[in-house]
Design a binder for these strands. Structure first.
Length: 388
DNA sequence: AAAGCACGCAACCGCCGCTCC
DNA sequence: GGGAGCGGCGGTTGCGTGCTT
């Protein structure tokens, strides 16, 4: 009954690996690569099954593995991603550089799961076990709603990716606006990135929405903010005014500024961050949390066909280094856009969606009007492009 | 000091999906 | 179309270690 185990052959060793075995495996892979795992043990002189070798390599011997304690940020990332993806450890691991799925799984099972349970949170649903006293407008309730929206969004993205992958394998080209090329050109000051959308090769790398989102809430310390000043959206006025921003497709609630997954409001941040960009004025407050998401949202809709303008330019007030990395394969650096971007930055504030200038108080557009204003800019900006 | 217990982690097992023939 | 082979994934196990009694 059932499938026979892969190590059924007599004489194949099981259990902990010895240093000698590790060395044999390392030496062989360094010289020849792993190729076929099934054939590898014999060639490497190991009395192990291929599966065991693969596991030892991927979980332990690989040179690009980070070992040791998980940082607070890594913990937060795991919890967030688990809320979105469930026990899909390999998917979670792709968002944690140098960590293996096995390590993350172990860490979840031995640490994080218990911690959440202690906090009264169901580690599987990420919802509070007891809902008494939590009104629908509570932070936790909103967080749950946000996660739900993010999961919906991520799910849509995965579907789109899968479709793209199949289409690209079938050799379908130019049949879908998703297959246009997405480029971001950037000024010398990366606070002003410009995203060009144009016809281009079909093989699009996927835009990692989760990382984008993660990048929006993970910048929590002053030093990090200093390092990432260029990833911020410049805005003024009330933080609550940007609550519940939704994309036109209603698949995404932008993370709330004050919930558990976002950094706290950063007021008067220019006290600690030099206004190098030229966009910031002395009295501007700075917040962040939706620039990356905006770019991600655009890419998502562009690739799903909701936006099909060609030769568009998206001006952003900044993308985090993280999302820049995600875009890296499709980015084109263009330093000539610096001045143009700066002026478009002003354009943003005139439309009440952020940017520099004196948009204080409650002067932000909300929800649909926010997104509509962005889309309107496709027609109104000098380059015929939406502005984030 | 020794036994019992809890914990963490490496490794195994079985299933699934993809690819090739 | 379907079966075999293979790699990958997630659940689980079992051993080593450190702590408690």
């Amino acid at each position: 009954m059932g499938r026979s185990p892969c190590c059924e052959k007599v004489g194949l060793k099981k259990g902990p690996w010895t240093p000698e075995e590790d060395q044999k495996l390392l030496t062989y892979i360094e010289e020849h690569g792993h190729g076929s795992w099934r054939a590898l043990p014999a060639k490497a002189g190991l009395q192990r099954c291929g599966k065991s070798c693969r596991l030892r390599w991927t979980n332990y011997l690989r040179p690009d593995i980070k070992r040791g304690k998980f940082s607070l940020q890594e913990e937060q990332t795991i919890i967030q991603l688990h809320a979105l993806l469930g026990n899909r450890w390999s998917a979670i691991a792709t968002h944690l550089p140098k960590r293996t799925d096995n390590e993350i799984k172990n860490y979840w099972n031995t640490h994080l799961k218990k911690r959440l349970t202690k906090m009264g949170i169901d580690p599987m649903t990420h919802k509070p076990k007891h809902h008494e006293g939590l009104g629908s407008g509570s932070g936790l309730a909103r967080d749950t709603a946000n996660i739900s929206h993010m999961a919906q969004w991520e799910s849509a993205r995965l579907e789109a990716e899968a479709r793209l992958g199949k289409e690209s394998k079938l050799g379908i080209t130019n049949a879908n606006p998703l297959q246009h090329h997405l480029m971001i050109s950037s000024s010398p000051n990366p606070a002003h990135h410009v995203v060009h959308v144009s016809k281009a090769p079909p093989a699009l790398p996927c835009l990692d929405v989760l990382k984008a989102w993660q990048g929006a809430w993970s910048l929590t310390t002053k030093s990090t903010i200093r390092d990432n000043v260029n990833s911020m959206v410049f805005s003024g006025g009330s933080m609550t005014a940007v609550d519940d921003l939704e994309s036109p497709t209603s698949t995404l609630n932008f993370p709330h500024v004050n919930n558990a997954f976002n950094p706290p409001p950063m007021q008067n941040i220019n006290n600690i961050v030099p206004c190098e960009s030229g966009l910031l004025q002395d009295n501007d407050n700075v917040t962040y949390g939706y620039t990356d998401a905006s770019a991600a949202w655009f890419a998502h809709n562009y690739r799903s066909g909701s936006i099909d303008e060609e030769e568009n330019v998206i001006v952003t007030t900044g993308l985090s280094s993280m999302i820049m990395e995600d875009f890296a394969d499709v980015l084109v650096y263009n330093s000539e856009d610096h001045q143009q971007n700066a002026s478009l930055g002003g354009h943003i504030s005139q439309n009440g969606v952020g940017g520099n200038g004196s948009c204080g108080g409650d002067g932000f557009e909300e929800n649909r009007s926010y997104w509509n204003s962005l889309l309107d800019l496709v027609d109104t900006s000098p380059s015929g492009s939406p502005v984030f």
